[in-house]
Simulated assay, not measured.
Amino acid sequence: MRGQGRADTGSWTEDPYTEALGLGCGPLYLRAHGGWSLTLDVERWCAVADAADLTVLDRCQGTVLDIGCGPGRLVAALGEYGHTSLGIDVNAAAVSRTVLRGGRALRRSVFDPLPTPGTWDTALLIDGNLGIGGDPALLLRRVARLVRPGGLLLVEVAGEDVDERLQVWMENARGTRGTPFPWARLGTPALHRVARATGWSPEDTWSKDTRDFTALRRDRFPRPAPG
């Protein structure tokens, strides 16, 4: 949950998110009307890759694009694995932290022009980044244009069977709020439905330390339109 779409970059470039990244810790919350709330794991984002992250890194193939890289723990670890990788994030502090860790990162939205589109072997949507822009189908279609035919997308999903579209904001323990922005949360069944409609085939699912993941493979050829 470390990057946002072009229209929503303000939410990720101002306090309280930037402040939390600078401190390397929370508390930081994602909130919505009606009492909906999700605690954001800033400490884990700012630490080194953990055991659950390693299950993702073990599945990466070739060149890797980390979408919403945050403070760069996965980009740094990918370098240790010998992968050529690039992190993208709209938050300047996140990009700076990634570079300080020795990773390569650009301050970009996934919807901005990016290097070598259509050639990346693997893309990552970890830490809730499937929610970017609040429209998972739009996001998966965009990532399909970035990854090569037959390429891989590794996604972290919600642990429960949910399919939510929300207007949310960041909020810290002092009650300071960021600008509202659209977000989405999908569990595995909902992700598989969206994936099949946007040029991806589910390949694997797994869990580690209360976190849940899905691997999607980009279709090599366009699917015929339903007749």
Rank of each mutant, 00 (worst) to 15 (best):
164 E>S: 03
117 P>Y: 06
157 V>T: 07
74 L>C: 07
102 G>P: 02
63 T>V: 08
176 T>A: 14
2 R>D: 15
185 R>W: 00
204 D>E: 12
8 D>A: 11
31 R>F: 02
185 R>E: 02
170 M>F: 11
134 G>N: 00
42 V>S: 03
93 A>G: 08
118 G>I: 06
216 L>C: 13
212 D>R: 09
171 E>N: 03
55 T>D: 08
53 D>M: 01
187 G>W: 00
47 A>V: 14
217 R>K: 15
133 G>N: 03
226 P>N: 11
39 T>Y: 02
219 D>Q: 15
184 A>C: 03
73 R>P: 12
184 A>E: 00
116 T>F: 10
130 L>T: 08
96 S>H: 15
24 G>D: 09
15 D>G: 12
145 R>V: 15
216 L>I: 14
83 H>T: 06
162 V>W: 01
29 Y>L: 14
108 R>Q: 10
124 L>W: 10
92 A>M: 14
211 R>W: 00
129 N>H: 07
109 S>L: 10
97 R>F: 10
98 T>F: 10
37 S>G: 11
63 T>W: 06
204 D>A: 10
143 V>N: 05
196 R>N: 09
227 G>D: 14
20 A>H: 10
210 T>G: 13
170 M>A: 05
12 W>F: 06
6 R>W: 11
19 E>T: 14
103 G>M: 05
1 M>N: 09
132 I>D: 00
105 A>P: 09
16 P>N: 02
143 V>T: 12
137 A>D: 11
58 D>W: 05
92 A>R: 12
171 E>D: 00
151 G>P: 04
10 G>W: 10
170 M>K: 12
83 H>A: 01
130 L>Y: 05
23 L>S: 13
36 W>Y: 01
185 R>C: 01
94 A>M: 08
82 G>T: 08
192 H>R: 13
4 Q>E: 07
60 C>V: 07
79 G>R: 12
